[in-house]
C-alpha cells in the first residue's frame, strides 16, 4: 500500500491523459459527420446534397434537341468538340423557358481569345493567334462563323 503512495501522482498525470483521450473521442464522435468514410475520405451525405443543388448547365443534348440547325453546322466544323455552353454559358434557365429567357449576345472579342490567345504554355498544335495583330479590332465573327470557324471550310457567313 505504501509502495503505491509514492507513485500515486504518476497515475494522476496518466489519468489526465486518459481524460484528454476520452474527451477527444467524445468530441470526435460529435464533430465527425456520421457518413464520413462510407465511400472514401469524405462525407458520403455530401453526394445527395450536391445532387440536389439547382442545375445551371443543361448539357449539349438539351441544346441540340431544339437547335439542330446549329448542331448540323457545328458538327462538321472545327468546334465540333466544343460544348454549346462553353461559349454561351450556363443556360438551364433558357432550356426550361426558351421564349422568356433569351441568352445574352456574346462578345467575341472577349470570348474567342479566352481559348485562342497565343501563349507559349499551350501546345503548338492548338490554333492560336495574337488577336490585336490578327483581327485588328474587327469582331471575330465578321470573318469566322463561330459554329464552324475554319475559313477555308466555307463556313464564312
Amino acid at each position: 500500500m505504501n509502495g503505491f503512495k509514492d507513485i500515486e501522482h504518476l497515475f494522476r498525470f496518466a489519468g489526465l491523459f486518459v481524460i484528454a483521450i476520452l474527451v477527444f473521442l467524445v468530441v470526435r464522435g460529435f464533430i465527425v459527420p456520421k457518413s464520413f468514410g462510407e465511400y472514401g475520405h469524405y462525407r458520403a451525405a455530401a453526394i445527395p446534397q450536391i445532387a440536389a443543388l439547382p442545375l445551371h448547365y443543361a448539357g449539349h443534348q438539351a441544346c441540340i434537341s431544339c437547335h439542330s440547325d446549329i448542331q448540323a453546322v457545328k458538327s462538321k466544323g472545327m468546334h465540333a468538340g466544343v460544348n454549346c455552353e462553353a461559349c454561351h454559358g450556363a443556360l438551364e434557365k433558357h432550356v426550361l423557358d426558351p421564349i422568356n429567357v433569351v441568352p445574352v449576345k456574346l462578345n467575341t472579342a472577349v470570348l474567342c481569345v479566352r481559348c485562342h490567345a497565343a501563349s507559349a504554355a499551350k501546345p503548338k498544335s492548338f490554333p492560336q493567334v495574337n488577336a490585336a495583330e490578327h483581327a485588328n479590332g474587327i469582331a471575330c465573327e465578321t470573318c469566322h462563323n463561330p459554329h464552324s470557324p475554319a475559313i477555308d471550310a466555307g463556313g464564312t457567313k
Binding site: 503512495k5 509514492d6 500515486e8 501522482h9 494522476r12
Partner: peptide
C-alpha cells in the same frame, strides 16, 4: 494535480 507527495522515494 492534487498530490503533494514529495517524499524522498517519490
Amino acid at each position: 494535480l492534487g498530490s503533494s507527495n514529495i517524499s524522498e522515494r517519490a
